[in-house]
Design a protein around this nucleic acid. Sequence first.
DNA 1: TACTCTCATATACTTTGGGGTAGGTTTGCC
DNA 2: GGCAAACCTACCCCAAAGTATATGAGAGTA
Lengths: 205, 205
Amino acid sequence: MPNILIADDHDLVRDTIAAYLETVDGFRVFAAPNLEVALEKMSGLDSIDLLILDYNMPGMHGLDGLVRAKDAYPATKVVLMSGVANKDVANAAMSRGANGFIPKSLAAASLVNAIKFVLSGERYFPFDFAGSSPSQSKDSTFASLSTREMETLEQLCIGISNKEIARNLNIQEVTVKLHVKNLMAKLGVANRTQAALLAKERHLF
Amino acid sequence: MPNILIADDHDLVRDTIAAYLETVDGFRVFAAPNLEVALEKMSGLDSIDLLILDYNMPGMHGLDGLVRAKDAYPATKVVLMSGVANKDVANAAMSRGANGFIPKSLAAASLVNAIKFVLSGERYFPFDFAGSSPSQSKDSTFASLSTREMETLEQLCIGISNKEIARNLNIQEVTVKLHVKNLMAKLGVANRTQAALLAKERHLF
DNA sequence: TACTCTCATATACTTTGGGGTAGGTTTGCC
DNA sequence: GGCAAACCTACCCCAAAGTATATGAGAGTA
């Protein structure tokens, strides 16, 4: 009987999923409200086979929490669960060692299949989860930005004007405009707001 | 045996809660992925006793969806469910006719009690769900927005221009400007980018 | 050396954003 | 009925954002 630990800060979501897994398929399920408690519980209970981490949860800090969990318990399979993240986040999670990615848009029945799949040693990664945003290229889009453009993007994410950005970076406003124009082109967005939203969505700043 | 309809766009959350309610306490539970489908189903199935609406769900537009549901089916009890909303939203919901408010931080067992409580004609409103996340103090800023302003804010979060927003909402561009100006003032931000970032940060859209 | 890339600056231009004022409708409430 | 609030439109104004093009310094490279 596989042991599963599910960590999610929403009690209702966590407990009902836990109850569902227990009743439907006889898993032994433990629960934690955040990453810290999850890691503590794992040190107490040995032999957790699968750890399910909510992407938006205290202590996670984007994918840092995933890496921490993987480092601390390399033998345990870890899957990320999220209601908001998109393919890019999922991709990043997989490249950092996640054994699977579970969008909350997944049907409950599929969850069980996904879990069995992961427990058998496979990686579960549904490419077809809905609600996906249209601009799905890669995180490589950001890799093409120069250092100045990245700095400019960071300022954009505060929502300030070109003039203020110029002051902060000690360059002329016209230069800021150039950087903004170039980074928008590289990211394939139409304006500064979209650039900021995209960067935030990918959790860059 | 009371009939319950639960509407939430996250399949996983919705289905597991539904399954939980069915197995644990023998309710008859129906499900819908958004407000439109929920209202359709209610016209088909007569005698839904309780409607559970997710606050962040396609078609809701803040508390508009609650009002629409209440107007269409005055006899049905309606409770709002949310993972991000705070007391201010809950208060606003209650003042607009909601029979209860269920934070997703609620324990699963308490959910059943809450539902029974509401079905008995009482209003369920837990005053103590503040604890969880730290940045929950003043979502009241968003409560002061009018319907149109909320819709405009939603469009802002896509990062599109006033002209495009005008097309989407079937109003003039000047009107969009007015809404943008007013909502920025209410939110205390300096421009559209900050408004979009703030809304995203609070997980409104 | 010549070539390329990044960064910076500049001028000139068009479009969009944001603020002000004013007047219009509908809705619901007292 | 009067009143207020939300909503919509219109006009003008100026600032900010974004486009296009050109120039030049510095670093790195073939």
